[in-house]
Lab assay of single mutants.
Amino acid sequence: VPQRAWTVEQLRSEQLPKKDIIKFLQEHGSDSFLAEHKLLGNIKNVAKTANKDHLVTAYNHLFETKRFK
């Protein structure tokens, strides 16, 4: 089981690129989880459509539901 890579403050910070969060989610989330949160596909394309709040919610949801690969 992966550990949380970032704190809530870090997740919301401008310093953390959306692409980093997407990469983490794609590496650790199950396909059904990723599909549900519309996070499947090319990281660049996902970054265009997903806002930061959406990614933070998905990140927290992944750990709450433990839907890891």
Rank of each mutant, 00 (worst) to 15 (best):
S32G: 08
A58N: 02
F68G: 02
P17G: 09
K52D: 03
K48M: 15
T57Q: 12
G41D: 06
L16E: 01
A35R: 09
K44S: 14
P2V: 07
K48S: 13
L62C: 02
L25V: 03
L62H: 01
P2N: 03
Q26Y: 05
K38Q: 13
N60Q: 12
K66W: 06
S32N: 09
Y59E: 01
H54W: 10
H54S: 12
E9R: 02
G29K: 00
T65M: 13
L62N: 00
E14Q: 11
D53R: 06
A35V: 09
W6H: 09
I43T: 08
A47M: 09
S32K: 09
A50L: 13
R12M: 15
T49V: 11
H54E: 12
K48Y: 12
A58Q: 03
T7Y: 03
V56Q: 03
F33Q: 00
I21K: 00
H37V: 06
H28K: 06
N60I: 15
T49R: 13
H37W: 12
F24S: 02
I21C: 01
Q15E: 13
V1C: 15
E36I: 10
H37T: 05
S32Q: 10
V46C: 06
K69A: 08
K18L: 09
K23P: 01
N51K: 09
K18M: 11
S13P: 02
T49I: 13
K48A: 14
S13W: 03
K69L: 05
H61N: 14
T57A: 11
L11T: 02
H54G: 11
I21P: 00
E9F: 03
I21W: 01
L55H: 00
R67S: 13
N51Q: 09
V46F: 05
Q26L: 07
K19I: 14
K18A: 15
A5Y: 14
I22H: 01
T7I: 03
L34D: 00
F63H: 03
A5F: 13
H61C: 15
V8G: 06
K23E: 13
H61K: 10
T7Q: 05
Y59S: 01
R4G: 07
H28A: 11
H28D: 00
F24N: 01
N45T: 14
A5L: 15
H61G: 09
V46S: 04
W6M: 05
K69T: 05
L40V: 12
D31K: 12
V1E: 13
N45I: 15
N42L: 13
T49F: 14
T65E: 11
K23N: 08
K52L: 07
N60C: 13
E64W: 10
L11M: 08
F63I: 03
P2Y: 04
D31P: 11
L11E: 01
S13F: 02
F24A: 04
E9T: 04
L34I: 05
T57I: 14
I43L: 10
G41N: 04
D53A: 08
D20I: 14
Q26I: 08
L55F: 06
D31V: 13
A58F: 04
W6A: 05
T7D: 14
P2G: 04
E27T: 09
Q26K: 07
G29N: 01
Q10P: 02
L34C: 05
L55K: 00
A50N: 07
T49E: 11
D20P: 05
D31G: 12
H37C: 10
Q15P: 04
L25C: 01
E64N: 08
I22Y: 03
N51C: 09
F68D: 02
V1W: 14
A5E: 15
F24G: 01
N42H: 12
E27K: 10
H28N: 13
S32D: 12
K23I: 08
A58R: 01
V46W: 04
T7C: 10
K69Q: 07
P2D: 04
R4C: 14
H61E: 14
K69N: 07
L40H: 09
K18R: 09
H28C: 08
S30C: 10
K44C: 15
L62R: 00
L40A: 11
Q15R: 08
S13N: 06
L11F: 02
D20K: 13
V8Y: 08
P17S: 09
A47V: 15
R12P: 03
E27P: 00
Q26S: 04
A58G: 02
S32W: 07
G29R: 00
Q15L: 12
P2S: 04
I43P: 12
T57R: 11
V46L: 13
D31N: 13
K19M: 12
H54R: 14
E14I: 09
N45P: 03
D31W: 15
N45L: 14
R12V: 12
D20G: 04
F24P: 00
K66S: 11
K48W: 08
T7E: 10
T49Q: 11
E27G: 07
I22P: 00
H54L: 10
L62E: 00
F33L: 04
S13R: 02
F68Q: 02
F33V: 01
R4N: 09
K52Q: 05
L40W: 10
F24D: 01
L16Y: 05
Q10D: 14
I43V: 11
A35T: 08
K38A: 12
V1M: 11
A50G: 05
G41I: 02
L40D: 11
F63E: 01
E14V: 10
F68S: 02
K44F: 13
H37G: 02
A47K: 12
L62G: 00
H54K: 12
H54N: 12
P17A: 09
Q3S: 09
D31E: 14
H37A: 06
F68H: 02
R4L: 05
E14R: 14
T65P: 02
L16V: 15
H28Q: 07
V56E: 06
P2L: 05
V56F: 05
R67T: 07
S32L: 09
K66V: 05
L40Y: 11
F68V: 02
L40K: 10
A47E: 15
L62K: 00
K66A: 09
I43R: 08
